[in-house]
Amino acid sequence: MKDELDSYFREIDKKLFTLSKKGRAACLKEHRGNVDAFLKEHPDAAFQDVEAFFGSAEGIAESFLHAERYPQAEKKLHMNSRCTHVLLAVIVAVGLVIALIAAASFVDQWQFRHGYTKESPVLTSAPDHSDEAIAIY
């Protein structure tokens, strides 16, 4: 029952993410107080009895949001943790791609400067006019 109750309150808390931190805490504290009173009078109650008496987590959260008693959180960048993780993953992926391209470019440049490619200008004498030299260009 404790796990189910914890999950129930966590779900309400998640759905109240648009409220200020203070507002969320106040809503949850009041609802916990009421649920606690119910459980004191019904010590053998199951979680389903709690939910049947008070309503679903979604319904409770909606009622707090609908009540508009507490202000919404400030409209600054306030993403929930899932969005943050996705954004971080995208940034890391893009960074890795850029790093790979840069590394490939560096290796290519290094090879070119040190005569590892056909076009390397590391020639001690003027290029000849052989068919092979002409084919490169």
Partner: peptide, 29 residues
Amino acid sequence: YAYNIMKKIRKFSGEAIAIQAGSLYPILY
């Protein structure tokens, strides 16, 4: 408090009617 109100409504109606917390909280606020 809210639980009291919900409990008394059930009790005095002989468990015929009930209200849920989600209906009561906005009204109290």
